[in-house]
């Protein structure tokens, strides 16, 4: 492959994005439970397959995105521009979707839009790529979509993350929603999910 060529996206855009959407819907309606999410045919480093699949499934000209410094490479920008035509913004608060390749860059969750009281849907959705969705320290989740409680142990979240998530859940119905991804799967974390750090 030539270095200046744009890598391929979904082989079958209609059905691959439908399948990815149903997996996202399953992940968000069953928070904390990993759902496998196959990536597109190709995605430029450092985008993992699931993160790329989410961007291709949800972003378009009506859905502005923001890229963190880890993902903000020329190849990633050209790939997303060509395949989704989503405006790429410099201000994370103005973005509908924030793609984050390295959680270590983030100062916190306050830089994103939590929605407005009459329109809580006008919030930013974060796609946060991690080294792995297991193997980290365990937290306990509860809320809509979870029968009793469920545990989650993603690897590579910064120390401020769970206290910040606690604050995010406390201002429900405002707040951001997050999809955590690794190289194979996605975990949904809607703002309605409460976390208990043991």
């Amino acid at each position: 492959m030539r270095a200046d060529m744009i890598p391929l996206a979904f082989r079958d855009p209609v059905h691959d994005s439908q399948s990815a959407f149903r997996r996202l819907l399953r992940a968000l309606s069953r928070p904390g439970t990993p759902v496998s999410l196959p990536g597109p045919a190709e995605a430029p480093e450092p985008m993992g397959g699931p993160l790329a699949a989410i961007a291709l499934t949800l972003a378009d000209a009506d859905c502005p995105i923001w890229l963190d410094p880890a993902l903000s490479t020329e190849r990633v920008r050209r790939y997303l521009h060509f395949h989704t035509n989503a405006p790429q913004l410099a201000d994370p608060r103005a973005a509908a979707i924030a793609l984050i390749g390295d959680a270590g860059w983030l100062p916190g969750l306050n830089g994103f839009h939590p929605g407005d009281a009459p329109y809580p849907d006008r919030s930013t959705t974060l796609i946060l790529q991690l080294p792995a969705l297991t193997g980290g320290s365990t937290v306990r989740l509860s809320g809509p979509g979870i029968e009793t409680t469920t545990s989650l142990a993603p690897l590579g979240l910064p120390n401020w993350f769970w206290p910040a998530w606690h604050e995010n859940a406390a201002r429900y119905p405002l707040g951001v929603d997050i999809f955590l991804t690794d190289d194979r799967a996605v975990v949904g974390l809607p703002r309605s999910t409460n976390v208990e750090v043991p």
Binding site: L24, L28, S29, A61, D62, C63, D121, P173, D177
Partner: peptide, 20 residues
């Protein structure tokens, strides 16, 4: 496809804020 994407984004928000 663009309409479906718009509706899919709305469905995900609806699931995140039950009843809204």
């Amino acid at each position: 496809e663009m309409t479906k994407r718009m509706i899919r984004r709305a469905i995900l928000k609806a699931v995140a804020v039950p009843g809204y």
